Simulated scan of single mutants.
Amino acid sequence: MNDQAERVTRPFRFGVVAPIRSDLPTWRDRVRRIADSGYSTLLMPDVPTWQPAIGPTLATAAALTDLRVGSWVYAAALREPWSTAWEAHSLSVLTEGRFEMGIGAGRPGIEVELGLPAVSVAERRTRMRETVAALRRFDGPDLHTPVVMAVSGPKAQALAVEVADSITFVLQPDNDRAETANRARDIPEDIELGQHVAVVGDSVHPFMAPPTLDTAALHAADSLLVLPSDPAAAAEEFQRRREELGFSYFVIGADFAETLAPAVAQLAGQ
């Protein structure tokens, strides 16, 4: 493994989680504004019953703009590997290579809430591995759908190092900057490090974290789940996180896209 100081400095890119929470014309206008603001990727959460399914929604978004699109993230607790891989490969083909498959274990208990059988942590990891393997078979030698894997524990992280192109850590409110830096040092330099940011200023974005999240405690702990709402301060923090921790891909909620657009315009691609 590589020491963090030796990591390759990757160009910044920025993604936006933009589920449909309005009428369709309003959502389409929001997608176009996101594309015009320098963001690279339009992302959808995997929360059945809350919004339309990921596949058709991302296909619609991809037809509106030239943005990359992706799942943030497929929940292995809800999905069978073969069918998920088929959908991911299909999106990669239909968007002409603009799709990236985000996948993770899924929120604890989400499958039971939806009336499905409970899925153990070990089985979730198995499904994640099998999904990526099936995706590679579907892609064949002429296509490589990028895989972003959301990881929490060491076993999931080891799996991601083996099969993913990008890794994002599932951070808890009490995970501090030093702890995350230690985890980042164990990631090889050929893997992109992504950051899921749930809070900007004192606001929590829906789909990104529970609304009961204690934002004051996060600020006090210098949590990486938080960014400042001032664009200049946010730009400085993006640069600090890349320099000190190696993060170059940042994913925020759509409600914050316009607020942080000046920082994104300044840094995207640099």
Rank of each mutant, 00 (worst) to 15 (best):
residue 63 A to I: 02
residue 5 A to L: 03
residue 233 A to P: 01
residue 124 R to Q: 12
residue 86 W to M: 13
residue 230 D to P: 05
residue 209 A to N: 06
residue 123 E to L: 11
residue 104 G to F: 03
residue 19 P to A: 13
residue 96 E to R: 15
residue 55 G to V: 10
residue 263 A to G: 03
residue 101 M to R: 03
residue 193 L to N: 05
residue 205 H to F: 14
residue 240 R to H: 07
residue 244 E to G: 03
residue 70 G to N: 05
residue 109 G to Y: 08
residue 139 D to E: 10
residue 223 S to T: 02
residue 236 E to W: 00
residue 147 V to K: 05
residue 77 A to H: 10
residue 195 Q to H: 06
residue 152 S to I: 12
residue 105 A to V: 01
residue 204 V to R: 03
residue 223 S to W: 11
residue 157 Q to C: 13
residue 264 V to Y: 02
residue 202 D to Y: 15
residue 5 A to S: 14
residue 240 R to K: 11
residue 77 A to T: 01
residue 184 A to P: 08
residue 220 A to N: 09
residue 45 P to R: 05
residue 236 E to C: 13
residue 56 P to H: 12
residue 70 G to P: 07
residue 173 P to W: 00
residue 110 I to P: 08
residue 227 L to R: 07
residue 121 V to L: 12
residue 34 I to K: 04
residue 100 E to Q: 14
residue 239 Q to Y: 11
residue 76 A to V: 03
residue 59 A to R: 09
residue 240 R to A: 06
residue 239 Q to S: 00
residue 198 A to L: 12
residue 89 H to F: 04
residue 78 L to Y: 06
residue 212 T to S: 14
residue 7 R to T: 04
residue 187 I to K: 04
residue 63 A to Y: 02
residue 100 E to A: 13
residue 151 V to T: 02
residue 111 E to F: 01
residue 215 T to A: 13
residue 228 P to I: 12
residue 36 D to I: 07
residue 76 A to C: 07
residue 26 T to M: 08
residue 209 A to V: 06
residue 60 T to N: 05
residue 160 A to S: 08
residue 24 L to C: 10
residue 128 M to Y: 08
residue 156 A to Q: 04
residue 216 A to M: 13
residue 48 P to A: 15
residue 140 G to T: 01
residue 170 V to D: 08
residue 41 T to Y: 06
residue 28 R to W: 04
residue 137 R to Q: 08
residue 230 D to M: 13
residue 269 G to K: 10
residue 265 A to E: 05
residue 28 R to C: 14
residue 129 R to A: 15
residue 103 I to F: 03
residue 67 L to N: 02
residue 83 S to G: 00
residue 141 P to C: 13
residue 132 V to A: 09
residue 7 R to L: 02
residue 93 V to K: 10
residue 234 A to E: 02
residue 262 P to W: 05
residue 31 V to G: 01
residue 100 E to I: 05
residue 94 L to W: 07
residue 34 I to Q: 06
residue 146 P to S: 09
